[in-house]
């Protein structure tokens, strides 16, 4: 096994155990590992931002232009210089007297984002999902009695969507019939939350499986080899 891999496995195992030591109680080993994690993630993010965005989409574009003729070069590259300047303006947040300047790039991102999202959300969710809720109520072909659930399920979906939406609708007092429908909505939500809980358990456990598998299959053999117990 190459030395760098060997060293890597020992370090990874040590850090894994340091994090798991938190399960016993909070301790310096956990805090040490936790701060390494934050530091390394921040360092990673900075390098990725440079190599994946700033260098290819900004610096390279600037270097492509012929700067011997600055006027032409500026015209050629203003579409990258302008957002870069806006980006730099964001740093004004760290200076209390000039922090208002950062509102301009924020306004650009928020304004464009809001404008782009409205029609797309209407299309992708409001229209599509409303239609997908009601369309199955009218089957394209005749349903056999043996497949009676194909008829019942769309009805359950419609009932579920409407009742949950009514439950969310707080603008009027919910009493009598509305209260009953709202209660049905709660039942649908409980089923969803229960199912989500089941899947959340599944997801979180898979992470433990991954780490324990690493300790058992990658790290333990190194210990046994070190102690001379390996085959």
């Amino acid at each position: 096994m190459p030395l760098q891999q060997l060293l890597g496995i020992w370090i990874a195992a040590g850090l894994t155990l340091a994090i798991y030591s938190f399960l016993y109680k909070d301790n310096p080993a956990y805090k040490f590992a936790e701060h390494i994690y934050v530091g390394i993630t921040a360092g990673y993010a900075l390098c990725t931002a440079w190599y994946n965005v700033i260098e290819p989409n900004l610096i390279s574009e600037l270097l492509k232009a012929n700067w011997h003729n600055p006027f032409t070069a500026l015209i050629m590259t203003w579409t990258v210089i302008a957002p870069a300047l806006l980006g730099i303006l964001m740093f004004s947040r760290f200076f209390s007297k000039a922090s208002w300047v950062s509102r301009i790039p924020i306004a650009f991102v928020i304004g464009a984002g809001a404008g782009i999202s409205v029609p797309n959300t209407v299309q992708a969710y409001l229209i599509k999902h409303t239609s997908a809720t009601f369309a199955p109520l009218i089957p394209k072909e005749a349903i056999a009695w043996s497949n009676i659930m194909d008829f019942i399920n769309p009805l359950i979906v419609v009932l579920g969507v409407i009742s949950v939406l009514i439950y969310f609708f707080f603008s009027i007092e919910q009493k009598n019939g509305l209260k009953t429908v709202s209660w049905i909505g709660i039942i649908f939500l409980m089923i969803f939350f229960g199912a989500s809980f089941g899947y959340t358990v599944m997801g979180r456990v898979s992470l433990v499986i991954g780490r324990v598998r690493f300790l058992i299959t990658d790290w333990f053999p190194l210990i046994t080899n070190l102690l001379g117990l390996g085959s």
């Binding site: 900075l46 870069a84 806006l86 991102v109 464009a112 984002g113």
Partner: peptide
């Protein structure tokens, strides 16, 4: 394109 470049600086702000 502008949003992408500004977002990269936003990441740097966070760091």
């Amino acid at each position: 394109l502008w949003i992408q470049i500004i977002a990269a600086f936003t990441l740097c702000i966070g760091i």
